[in-house]
Computed example of a mutant assay.
Amino acid sequence: MMIKTSERIKQYLLKNRQASGSELADYLGITDRAVRKQLAALLGKNQITKKGRPPKVFYQLATAFIPGVSISLSPKQTEIINANYLIITPGGEKMAGVNGFAYWCVKTNQPLEKTAKDYVLALAKYQRYRRQGLISGMSKLKHTFDRVYLDKLYYLDFYSLERFGKTKLGQLLLYAKQSQDKSLIGELVGGIKKPVKQLIIKHKIASVGFIPPTVKRQVQLMKELQKKLQLNLRLMALTKIKTTVIVPQKTLTKLADRIENAKQTIVVAETGRHDNVLLIDDAVGSGATLNETAAQIRAKKLVKGKIIGLAITGSFKGFEVISEV
Rank of each mutant, 00 (worst) to 15 (best):
Y159N: 15
A64D: 11
E113D: 14
S315G: 15
K240D: 00
G190S: 08
N232T: 05
I312N: 02
E292R: 07
D118W: 06
K263H: 12
S72I: 10
I211F: 02
K168D: 01
A122M: 13
A83N: 14
I135A: 02
R130E: 05
L150I: 04
F145T: 07
A256V: 13
L188T: 09
L172D: 01
M236E: 05
G272I: 14
D157N: 08
D26R: 14
V196I: 15
Q38F: 12
T167F: 02
K168A: 00
I322T: 06
D146R: 15
K216H: 08
K300I: 01
V245H: 13
A124I: 01
A102E: 00
N109M: 11
I3M: 15
K37N: 13
Y149M: 14
N46I: 01
A25Q: 02
K228W: 00
K216F: 05
L184A: 10
Q264P: 11
K10N: 06
K227A: 09
K4Y: 11
H274Q: 01
S6C: 03
V196Y: 02
K152P: 04
K166R: 14
G44K: 02
A262H: 00
P67G: 09
G91V: 00
V106H: 06
Q11D: 09
I211A: 12
S160R: 15
G318T: 07
N276W: 02
V106P: 04
D257H: 14
Q180T: 07
V284R: 08
L302D: 07
L24T: 01
R217W: 00
Y59V: 00
L231H: 12
L172W: 05
K193L: 12
Y149L: 13
V148W: 09
Y159W: 12
Q180V: 04
K197L: 11
E260C: 08
L235C: 12
Q178G: 07
V247G: 08
L302Q: 10
I280S: 02
A176G: 15
N82V: 03
E23N: 12
G190C: 04
V277A: 04
R147Y: 13
A34N: 13
I211R: 04
M95H: 11
K250H: 10
I81Y: 01
G137V: 06
I201D: 12
K304P: 05
V268K: 10
K216V: 07
K204Y: 01
L73Q: 05
Q178V: 09
A122I: 05
A283Q: 09
V277R: 05
L73V: 01
L199R: 10
I9Q: 04
E320C: 07
M222G: 08
L233P: 13
K197N: 10
Q249T: 10
L156E: 01
I87W: 00
I87G: 00
D281Q: 14
D281T: 11
A288D: 02
K177D: 02
K114Y: 05
M222A: 13
Q226F: 04
K254I: 04
V120W: 06
I135V: 10
I135T: 02
T144R: 15
I80H: 00
L238D: 04
G191D: 06
A102T: 08
A288G: 04
I297K: 10
T271S: 13
L150Y: 01
F210I: 05
T108L: 10
E260F: 07
F164E: 10
K202G: 05
L221D: 08
Q218P: 03
L279V: 06
